[in-house]
Simulated assay, not measured.
Amino acid sequence: MKVLAAMSGGVDSAVAAARAVEAGHDVVGVHLALSRMPGTLRTGSRGCCTIEDSMDAQRAANIVGIPYYVWDFSERFKADVVDDFIAEYSAGRTPNPCMRCNERIKFAALLEKALALGFDAVCTGHYASIVMDADGNHELHRASAWAKDQSYVLGVLTTEQLAHAMFPLGATPSKAEVRAEAAERGFSVANKPDSHDICFIPDGDTRGWLAERVGAEAGDILDRDGAKLGEHEGAHAYTVGQRRGLHIGRPASDGKPRFVLEVRPKENVVVVGPKAALAITEIAGSRFTWAGQPPESPETPFDCDVQIRAHADPVPARAFVMSDAAGRHELVITPFAPLNGVAAGQTAVVYVGTRVLGQTTIDRTVSAVPVEDAVTAQAR
Protein backbone atom coordinates (compact mmCIF):
# COMPACT_ATOMS: atom_id res chain seq x y z
CA MET A 1 0.00 0.00 0.00
CA LYS A 2 0.94 3.60 -0.45
CA VAL A 3 1.07 5.00 3.09
CA LEU A 4 1.36 8.56 4.39
CA ALA A 5 3.08 8.52 7.79
CA ALA A 6 2.13 11.44 10.02
CA MET A 7 5.37 12.26 11.86
CA SER A 8 4.94 14.54 14.85
CA GLY A 9 8.62 14.57 15.77
CA GLY A 10 8.14 12.14 18.65
CA VAL A 11 9.42 8.63 19.18
CA ASP A 12 6.09 6.87 18.58
CA SER A 13 5.41 8.24 15.10
CA ALA A 14 9.04 7.69 14.07
CA VAL A 15 8.93 4.00 15.02
CA ALA A 16 5.47 3.62 13.44
CA ALA A 17 6.79 4.98 10.13
CA ALA A 18 9.79 2.63 10.28
CA ARG A 19 7.55 -0.37 10.93
CA ALA A 20 5.31 0.59 8.01
CA VAL A 21 8.38 0.57 5.74
CA GLU A 22 9.51 -2.82 7.03
CA ALA A 23 6.00 -4.17 6.41
CA GLY A 24 6.62 -3.54 2.72
CA HIS A 25 4.56 -0.40 2.24
CA ASP A 26 5.51 2.55 0.05
CA VAL A 27 5.82 5.21 2.77
CA VAL A 28 6.08 9.00 2.64
CA GLY A 29 6.58 11.02 5.83
CA VAL A 30 4.77 14.28 6.52
CA HIS A 31 4.91 16.71 9.43
CA LEU A 32 1.96 19.02 10.06
CA ALA A 33 2.86 22.67 10.67
CA LEU A 34 0.04 23.94 12.87
CA SER A 35 1.16 27.52 13.43
CA ARG A 36 2.89 30.14 11.31
CA MET A 37 3.96 32.14 14.36
CA PRO A 38 7.07 31.00 16.27
CA GLY A 39 6.46 30.73 19.99
CA THR A 40 2.74 30.01 19.73
CA LEU A 41 3.16 26.27 20.24
CA ARG A 42 4.85 24.57 23.14
CA THR A 43 8.17 22.80 22.79
CA GLY A 44 9.82 19.69 24.21
CA SER A 45 7.56 17.77 26.59
CA ARG A 46 5.10 20.67 26.64
CA GLY A 47 3.52 20.23 23.24
CA CYS A 48 4.00 19.07 19.66
CA CYS A 49 4.28 20.17 16.04
CA THR A 50 6.88 22.92 16.60
CA ILE A 51 9.88 23.75 14.39
CA GLU A 52 11.99 21.68 16.78
CA ASP A 53 9.66 18.74 16.24
CA SER A 54 9.70 19.07 12.46
CA MET A 55 13.50 18.79 12.50
CA ASP A 56 13.32 15.70 14.71
CA ALA A 57 10.83 14.15 12.31
CA GLN A 58 13.02 14.89 9.31
CA ARG A 59 16.05 13.26 10.93
CA ALA A 60 14.01 10.12 11.59
CA ALA A 61 12.67 10.08 8.02
CA ASN A 62 16.22 10.39 6.67
CA ILE A 63 17.33 7.38 8.71
CA VAL A 64 14.36 5.31 7.56
CA GLY A 65 15.03 6.44 3.99
CA ILE A 66 11.63 7.84 3.06
CA PRO A 67 10.63 11.11 1.37
CA TYR A 68 9.63 13.79 3.88
CA TYR A 69 7.48 16.89 3.60
CA VAL A 70 6.05 19.59 5.85
CA TRP A 71 2.42 20.52 5.16
CA ASP A 72 0.96 23.80 6.36
CA PHE A 73 -2.30 23.06 8.19
CA SER A 74 -2.18 26.20 10.34
CA GLU A 75 -5.38 27.81 9.02
CA ARG A 76 -7.38 24.59 9.36
CA PHE A 77 -5.94 24.01 12.84
CA LYS A 78 -6.90 27.49 13.99
CA ALA A 79 -10.44 27.19 12.66
CA ASP A 80 -11.17 23.61 13.69
CA VAL A 81 -9.24 23.29 16.95
CA VAL A 82 -8.22 26.66 18.44
CA ASP A 83 -11.39 28.58 17.55
CA ASP A 84 -13.51 25.59 18.58
CA PHE A 85 -11.71 25.54 21.94
CA ILE A 86 -12.54 29.21 22.49
CA ALA A 87 -16.15 28.78 21.38
CA GLU A 88 -16.68 25.79 23.69
CA TYR A 89 -15.31 27.61 26.72
CA SER A 90 -17.41 30.66 25.81
CA ALA A 91 -20.45 28.38 25.92
CA GLY A 92 -19.53 27.05 29.36
CA ARG A 93 -18.30 23.67 28.13
CA THR A 94 -15.00 21.87 28.73
CA PRO A 95 -13.55 20.82 25.35
CA ASN A 96 -10.84 18.30 24.54
CA PRO A 97 -8.60 19.91 21.87
CA CYS A 98 -6.61 16.71 21.26
CA MET A 99 -9.85 14.92 20.40
CA ARG A 100 -10.80 17.70 17.97
CA CYS A 101 -7.33 17.59 16.41
CA ASN A 102 -7.58 13.86 15.75
CA GLU A 103 -11.09 14.25 14.39
CA ARG A 104 -10.72 17.31 12.21
CA ILE A 105 -7.01 17.52 11.37
CA LYS A 106 -5.27 14.13 11.40
CA PHE A 107 -8.21 12.02 10.27
CA ALA A 108 -10.23 14.52 8.26
CA ALA A 109 -8.06 17.19 6.67
CA LEU A 110 -4.92 15.05 6.45
CA LEU A 111 -6.67 11.87 5.34
CA GLU A 112 -8.75 13.81 2.81
CA LYS A 113 -5.60 15.24 1.24
CA ALA A 114 -3.82 11.89 1.40
CA LEU A 115 -6.61 10.11 -0.46
CA ALA A 116 -6.74 12.88 -3.05
CA LEU A 117 -3.01 12.35 -3.69
CA GLY A 118 -3.45 8.60 -4.17
CA PHE A 119 -2.43 7.29 -0.75
CA ASP A 120 -4.24 4.25 0.63
CA ALA A 121 -3.81 4.94 4.32
CA VAL A 122 -2.53 7.34 6.97
CA CYS A 123 -0.16 5.87 9.55
CA THR A 124 0.26 7.36 13.04
CA GLY A 125 2.02 6.43 16.27
CA HIS A 126 -1.16 6.03 18.31
CA TYR A 127 -1.42 3.02 20.61
CA ALA A 128 -4.59 1.37 19.31
CA SER A 129 -5.49 -1.53 17.03
CA ILE A 130 -7.72 -2.02 14.00
CA VAL A 131 -9.14 -5.50 13.44
CA MET A 132 -11.54 -6.97 10.91
CA ASP A 133 -14.73 -8.65 12.03
CA ALA A 134 -16.13 -11.82 10.44
CA ASP A 135 -17.86 -9.76 7.75
CA GLY A 136 -14.77 -7.76 6.83
CA ASN A 137 -15.76 -4.59 8.70
CA HIS A 138 -13.06 -2.50 10.38
CA GLU A 139 -13.18 -2.21 14.17
CA LEU A 140 -11.15 0.02 16.49
CA HIS A 141 -9.83 -1.73 19.61
CA ARG A 142 -7.71 -0.87 22.61
CA ALA A 143 -3.96 -1.38 22.39
CA SER A 144 -2.49 -4.47 24.01
CA ALA A 145 -0.84 -2.30 26.68
CA TRP A 146 -3.75 -0.68 28.50
CA ALA A 147 -1.42 1.64 30.41
CA LYS A 148 -0.50 3.32 27.12
CA ASP A 149 -3.78 2.75 25.28
CA GLN A 150 -4.88 5.79 23.22
CA SER A 151 -8.09 4.43 21.74
CA TYR A 152 -10.09 7.03 23.72
CA VAL A 153 -8.76 9.96 21.67
CA LEU A 154 -9.45 7.99 18.49
CA GLY A 155 -13.08 7.36 19.39
CA VAL A 156 -14.11 10.12 16.97
CA LEU A 157 -12.99 8.11 13.92
CA THR A 158 -15.70 7.04 11.50
CA THR A 159 -16.12 3.81 9.56
CA GLU A 160 -14.59 5.36 6.44
CA GLN A 161 -11.62 6.78 8.35
CA LEU A 162 -10.88 3.45 10.04
CA ALA A 163 -10.71 1.83 6.61
CA HIS A 164 -7.78 4.14 5.75
CA ALA A 165 -5.98 4.25 9.13
CA MET A 166 -2.92 2.30 10.28
CA PHE A 167 -1.57 2.00 13.85
CA PRO A 168 1.64 -0.10 13.81
CA LEU A 169 2.21 0.25 17.58
CA GLY A 170 -1.11 -1.26 18.67
CA ALA A 171 0.30 -4.67 19.62
CA THR A 172 3.45 -3.34 21.31
CA PRO A 173 3.62 -4.44 24.98
CA SER A 174 5.16 -1.24 26.36
CA LYS A 175 6.50 2.22 25.58
CA ALA A 176 9.89 1.09 26.87
CA GLU A 177 10.05 -1.40 24.01
CA VAL A 178 9.32 1.38 21.49
CA ARG A 179 12.07 3.56 22.96
CA ALA A 180 14.52 0.66 22.86
CA GLU A 181 13.64 0.02 19.21
CA ALA A 182 14.10 3.73 18.42
CA ALA A 183 17.55 3.67 20.01
CA GLU A 184 18.52 0.59 17.99
CA ARG A 185 17.45 2.38 14.83
CA GLY A 186 19.56 5.39 15.73
CA PHE A 187 16.66 7.81 16.19
CA SER A 188 17.66 10.92 18.16
CA VAL A 189 14.14 11.01 19.62
CA ALA A 190 14.54 7.68 21.45
CA ASN A 191 14.46 9.38 24.85
CA LYS A 192 12.47 12.46 23.92
CA PRO A 193 9.80 13.17 26.58
CA ASP A 194 6.16 12.58 25.68
CA SER A 195 4.18 15.69 24.80
CA HIS A 196 1.26 16.71 26.98
CA ASP A 197 -1.04 19.60 27.84
CA ILE A 198 -2.44 22.04 25.26
CA CYS A 199 0.07 22.67 22.47
CA PHE A 200 -1.30 26.07 21.40
CA ILE A 201 -1.00 27.66 24.87
CA PRO A 202 2.78 28.27 25.04
CA ASP A 203 3.14 29.12 28.74
CA GLY A 204 0.52 26.70 30.04
CA ASP A 205 -1.60 29.52 31.50
CA THR A 206 -4.99 28.44 30.13
CA ARG A 207 -6.87 30.89 32.33
CA GLY A 208 -4.83 33.88 31.15
CA TRP A 209 -4.91 32.72 27.52
CA LEU A 210 -8.70 32.49 27.58
CA ALA A 211 -9.05 35.84 29.34
CA GLU A 212 -7.27 37.55 26.44
CA ARG A 213 -9.64 35.99 23.90
CA VAL A 214 -12.93 35.62 25.74
CA GLY A 215 -12.66 38.48 28.20
CA ALA A 216 -12.89 38.41 31.97
CA GLU A 217 -15.97 40.02 33.48
CA ALA A 218 -16.81 39.78 37.16
CA GLY A 219 -19.97 37.87 38.03
CA ASP A 220 -21.78 36.02 40.76
CA ILE A 221 -21.04 32.70 42.42
CA LEU A 222 -24.34 31.09 43.39
CA ASP A 223 -25.44 28.02 45.26
CA ARG A 224 -27.90 25.58 43.67
CA ASP A 225 -30.82 27.49 45.20
CA GLY A 226 -29.71 30.73 43.50
CA ALA A 227 -28.35 32.44 46.61
CA LYS A 228 -25.27 34.59 46.03
CA LEU A 229 -22.19 33.35 47.86
CA GLY A 230 -19.48 35.48 46.29
CA GLU A 231 -18.06 36.87 43.06
CA HIS A 232 -15.73 35.56 40.37
CA GLU A 233 -13.42 37.39 37.95
CA GLY A 234 -14.48 35.54 34.81
CA ALA A 235 -16.65 32.43 34.43
CA HIS A 236 -14.36 30.90 31.79
CA ALA A 237 -11.69 30.36 34.44
CA TYR A 238 -13.79 27.76 36.27
CA THR A 239 -14.38 24.11 35.44
CA VAL A 240 -16.78 21.54 36.84
CA GLY A 241 -15.29 19.81 39.86
CA GLN A 242 -13.00 22.71 40.78
CA ARG A 243 -12.59 23.33 44.52
CA ARG A 244 -9.74 25.79 44.90
CA GLY A 245 -9.83 29.45 43.98
CA LEU A 246 -13.55 30.04 44.65
CA HIS A 247 -12.90 32.74 47.30
CA ILE A 248 -16.30 32.34 48.93
CA GLY A 249 -16.45 34.38 52.11
CA ARG A 250 -18.75 32.29 54.27
CA PRO A 251 -18.46 28.51 54.70
CA ALA A 252 -21.24 26.04 53.95
CA SER A 253 -23.58 25.33 56.87
CA ASP A 254 -22.15 21.82 57.21
CA GLY A 255 -18.58 23.12 57.12
CA LYS A 256 -17.71 21.05 54.05
CA PRO A 257 -16.02 22.52 50.96
CA ARG A 258 -17.99 23.54 47.88
CA PHE A 259 -17.21 22.54 44.32
CA VAL A 260 -18.04 24.03 40.93
CA LEU A 261 -21.13 22.24 39.62
CA GLU A 262 -22.01 24.36 36.62
CA VAL A 263 -20.75 27.30 34.55
CA ARG A 264 -23.33 29.55 32.86
CA PRO A 265 -21.43 31.95 30.57
CA LYS A 266 -24.50 33.69 29.15
CA GLU A 267 -25.50 34.70 32.67
CA ASN A 268 -21.83 35.01 33.72
CA VAL A 269 -22.62 32.81 36.71
CA VAL A 270 -20.73 30.00 38.44
CA VAL A 271 -22.84 27.52 40.43
CA VAL A 272 -21.28 25.69 43.38
CA GLY A 273 -22.48 23.01 45.76
CA PRO A 274 -21.60 19.89 47.75
CA LYS A 275 -19.22 17.24 46.47
CA ALA A 276 -22.08 14.72 46.39
CA ALA A 277 -23.74 16.73 43.62
CA LEU A 278 -20.77 16.02 41.33
CA ALA A 279 -21.90 12.39 41.10
CA ILE A 280 -23.54 11.96 37.68
CA THR A 281 -26.07 9.21 36.95
CA GLU A 282 -26.74 10.02 33.28
CA ILE A 283 -24.95 11.73 30.40
CA ALA A 284 -26.22 12.44 26.91
CA GLY A 285 -25.14 14.08 23.68
CA SER A 286 -26.56 14.71 20.23
CA ARG A 287 -23.17 14.90 18.48
CA PHE A 288 -22.42 11.18 18.43
CA THR A 289 -20.66 8.94 15.90
CA TRP A 290 -19.98 5.23 15.53
CA ALA A 291 -16.44 3.86 15.09
CA GLY A 292 -17.21 1.13 12.61
CA GLN A 293 -20.50 -0.71 12.44
CA PRO A 294 -23.16 0.68 14.83
CA PRO A 295 -25.24 -1.53 17.11
CA GLU A 296 -27.81 -3.56 15.22
CA SER A 297 -30.61 -1.76 17.04
CA PRO A 298 -29.18 1.39 18.74
CA GLU A 299 -32.64 2.40 20.01
CA THR A 300 -32.64 -0.71 22.19
CA PRO A 301 -30.60 -0.28 25.40
CA PHE A 302 -27.33 -2.24 25.29
CA ASP A 303 -24.62 -2.95 27.86
CA CYS A 304 -21.25 -1.26 27.40
CA ASP A 305 -18.45 0.56 29.21
CA VAL A 306 -18.10 4.33 29.15
CA GLN A 307 -14.88 6.34 29.51
CA ILE A 308 -15.01 10.12 29.95
CA ARG A 309 -11.31 11.02 30.08
CA ALA A 310 -8.23 9.77 28.27
CA HIS A 311 -6.74 8.22 31.40
CA ALA A 312 -9.93 7.38 33.28
CA ASP A 313 -11.04 3.84 34.02
CA PRO A 314 -13.96 2.54 31.96
CA VAL A 315 -17.23 2.24 33.88
CA PRO A 316 -19.93 -0.36 33.12
CA ALA A 317 -23.02 1.32 31.69
CA ARG A 318 -26.10 0.97 29.52
CA ALA A 319 -26.66 3.11 26.43
CA PHE A 320 -29.22 3.73 23.72
CA VAL A 321 -30.16 6.28 21.08
CA MET A 322 -33.22 8.32 22.02
CA SER A 323 -35.26 10.11 19.33
CA ASP A 324 -37.92 12.77 19.82
CA ALA A 325 -40.92 13.85 17.76
CA ALA A 326 -38.85 16.49 15.96
CA GLY A 327 -36.43 13.87 14.65
CA ARG A 328 -33.57 14.81 16.97
CA HIS A 329 -31.34 11.98 18.16
CA GLU A 330 -29.34 11.72 21.37
CA LEU A 331 -27.00 9.05 22.70
CA VAL A 332 -28.01 8.51 26.33
CA ILE A 333 -25.58 6.70 28.66
CA THR A 334 -26.44 5.53 32.17
CA PRO A 335 -23.42 4.31 34.18
CA PHE A 336 -24.03 1.53 36.68
CA ALA A 337 -22.03 3.55 39.24
CA PRO A 338 -22.12 7.37 39.24
CA LEU A 339 -19.41 9.23 37.31
CA ASN A 340 -17.61 12.02 39.12
CA GLY A 341 -17.33 15.64 37.97
CA VAL A 342 -18.49 15.30 34.37
CA ALA A 343 -18.76 18.53 32.37
CA ALA A 344 -20.61 19.40 29.20
CA GLY A 345 -18.16 19.48 26.30
CA GLN A 346 -16.22 16.41 27.44
CA THR A 347 -16.21 13.34 25.25
CA ALA A 348 -17.78 10.07 26.37
CA VAL A 349 -16.35 7.08 24.51
CA VAL A 350 -18.38 3.87 24.52
CA TYR A 351 -16.67 0.45 24.52
CA VAL A 352 -17.91 -3.10 24.16
CA GLY A 353 -15.08 -5.18 25.56
CA THR A 354 -11.91 -3.81 23.98
CA ARG A 355 -13.77 -2.44 20.97
CA VAL A 356 -14.49 1.27 20.61
CA LEU A 357 -18.14 1.39 19.60
CA GLY A 358 -18.52 5.15 19.31
CA GLN A 359 -18.51 8.48 21.12
CA THR A 360 -20.52 11.57 21.90
CA THR A 361 -19.74 15.10 23.01
CA ILE A 362 -21.63 15.52 26.27
CA ASP A 363 -24.44 18.08 26.09
CA ARG A 364 -26.17 17.42 29.39
CA THR A 365 -25.75 15.53 32.65
CA VAL A 366 -28.06 14.40 35.45
CA SER A 367 -26.79 14.71 39.03
CA ALA A 368 -27.34 11.97 41.59
CA VAL A 369 -28.37 14.70 44.04
CA PRO A 370 -31.45 16.71 42.99
CA VAL A 371 -31.36 20.44 43.69
CA GLU A 372 -33.88 20.27 46.53
CA ASP A 373 -31.86 17.53 48.28
CA ALA A 374 -28.63 19.53 48.00
CA VAL A 375 -30.31 22.65 49.36
CA THR A 376 -31.76 20.70 52.30
CA ALA A 377 -28.39 19.13 53.05
CA GLN A 378 -26.64 22.53 53.09
CA ALA A 379 -29.34 24.04 55.28
CA ARG A 380 -28.86 21.51 58.08
Rank of each mutant, 00 (worst) to 15 (best):
A61E: 00
I198Y: 03
E217R: 14
D135F: 06
A108R: 00
P257W: 02
A310L: 13
D12C: 03
R207H: 12
H196K: 13
G92Q: 07
V30Y: 07
A218S: 15
G136F: 03
F336N: 15
F73S: 07
D254T: 13
P338W: 00
L32P: 07
T50A: 15
A60Q: 05
V375N: 00
E88D: 15
A337Y: 13
N191F: 12
A180Q: 09
V269R: 12
R309G: 15
G249Q: 14
R264A: 13
K175L: 12
T43K: 11
P257L: 04
R328L: 07
D220W: 01
E88V: 15
A325L: 03
V260L: 11
L339V: 05
V352Y: 04
A114R: 02
I66H: 05
A218Q: 14
I280E: 04
I280R: 01
T40A: 01
T239W: 00
K106A: 02
F320N: 05
A61Y: 09
E299A: 04
K266Q: 15
G92D: 15
R380D: 10
R207D: 04
S8M: 08
M99W: 15
L210V: 07
D373P: 03
L246Y: 09
Q378H: 06
T206Q: 13
C101A: 09
C304S: 05
T365V: 14
G226Q: 07
H236L: 07
D220S: 08
V315F: 08
M37L: 12
I66P: 09
R287Y: 10
A6C: 15
D84L: 08
A368L: 06
E52D: 14
T361K: 07
V306Y: 05
R142L: 13
V352P: 02
G155R: 02
E181C: 05
C49M: 10
G170Y: 11
V371S: 07
V271H: 02
V64L: 03
P274Y: 00
F107Y: 12
E330T: 11
V366D: 05
A165Q: 03
N102Q: 09
A319E: 01
R328T: 09
P370N: 04
V342S: 07
P257M: 04
G234R: 08
T289W: 00
L261Y: 10
G219N: 09
P38R: 12
T124H: 02
A171T: 14
N62I: 05
G125M: 08
S45H: 14
D223T: 09
I130N: 07
E75H: 11
Y238H: 03
V28N: 00
E177F: 03
D26W: 04
R264C: 12
A57M: 12
A61R: 03
R104D: 01
T50W: 08
A276L: 10
H311A: 13
D220L: 08
L331K: 02
T124R: 08
